[in-house]
């Protein structure tokens, strides 16, 4: 990913400069304003339409969803599909187990990556540069290159069909270490010096000083981790066969191939599976958008 933190005044990055003088409303200005609104509606529409279409399809009946002649809206908006799939214990379980896994994965990712970030940003130890190079190098290894051998490794470790096989492999991520470290490098050293005089150890300084200041990078790393876990498809398909541990994307893809006549219900299920990440994003959108910048560049 391409996120890096802007140390201060990051809100300034998001807000476009508002230097506009009031001018008289001439017909050209009114027209320009209307064009602007039209373009905005077009962009927002193009971005959100597929998702709206997915949700609408969920309200259609089994026949309506692919009826010829084509039908845009359902004749009757029925909740049936949403209700039926939410009554299916397998679907509810897949949402619950994926959610649980995502929360554990996020917490683990925040913990291990911020530990490493703090060590690289503030501690003084042997082989620091060499280890930094090793950690950063892992960022450039494409997932496909190690997909099969990772599978062999987790098979030999008897991790197949456990929650651990979903959580452990991706938890440590060089991008996150890098991102949090950039933030820590910008924290003024004077803050720690005061704490050091009070006799605080290095770990205490991390817990008492750095963690409370870490909200901006933790929000970004946390949300990214949650999304990565929630949206994962190929790895769960390879490592999970027990229906008890089915992940939500895996469930949807399996539903699609096994119950192809239930398209409307699949769309309802997809809508429900997309809802949590959309809500999560909307809650934290300000911090996330403010932090999207090119890695390492200003």
């Amino acid at each position: 990913m391409t996120l890096t933190h802007e140390p201060s005044g990051s809100t300034a990055v998001t807000s476009p400069p508002v230097v506009r003088r009031r001018r008289a409303l001439t017909p050209t200005r009114v027209l320009a304003g209307m064009v602007r609104v039209a373009v905005a509606v077009l962009i927002i529409g193009a971005a959100l339409f597929p998702l709206a279409w997915m949700a609408i399809a969920g309200f259609k009946s089994k026949q309506e969803v692919v009826r010829t002649p084509f039908q845009f809206f359902p004749e009757v908006w029925r909740l049936e599909n949403y209700r039926t799939i939410l009554d299916d214990p397998a679907f509810v379980r897949t949402l619950a187990i994926t959610g649980l896994g995502a929360v554990l994965f996020t917490l683990l990712s925040l913990t291990v990556n911020s530990f490493a970030a703090y060590a690289f940003a503030r501690l003084d130890f042997h082989f620091k540069r060499a280890l930094w190079v090793v950690v950063i190098s892992t960022m450039f290894i494409p997932g496909m290159t190690i997909l099969l051998t990772s599978f062999i490794v987790v098979t030999k470790l008897h991790m197949l069909d456990t929650l651990a096989v979903l959580i452990l492999p991706g938890a440590a991520a060089a991008v996150h270490v890098f991102f949090i470290r950039q933030f820590y490098l910008n924290i003024p050293r004077s803050l720690e010096e005061a704490a050091m005089i009070d006799g605080c150890g290095k770990f205490e300084i991390f817990v008492k000083l750095f963690v409370p200041l870490s909200k901006p990078p933790f929000v970004v790393v946390g949300i990214t981790s949650f999304l990565v876990f929630w949206n994962a498809y190929v790895w769960p398909v390879m490592t999970i066969t027990s229906p008890d541990l089915y992940q939500v994307q895996q469930y949807l893809a399996t539903f699609r191939s096994e119950r192809s006549s239930e398209l409307a219900m699949l769309m309802a299920g997809s809508t429900l599976a997309a809802a949590p990440v959309i809500v999560l994003f909307l809650i934290f959108q300000r911090q996330i958008i403010a932090n999207i910048k090119m890695a390492g560049l200003k």
């Binding site: 597929p50 997915m54 994307q249 949807l252 997809s270 959309i278 994003f281």
Partner: peptide
């Protein structure tokens, strides 16, 4: 509003995107 809207597709999974476009 524009920034939020254009970013939302980014957070949607490839599976859900595939299902929706296939429809």
């Amino acid at each position: 509003a524009l920034k939020i809207s254009v970013y939302i597709p980014t957070i949607i999974s490839a599976v859900i995107t595939s299902i929706t476009f296939a429809l």
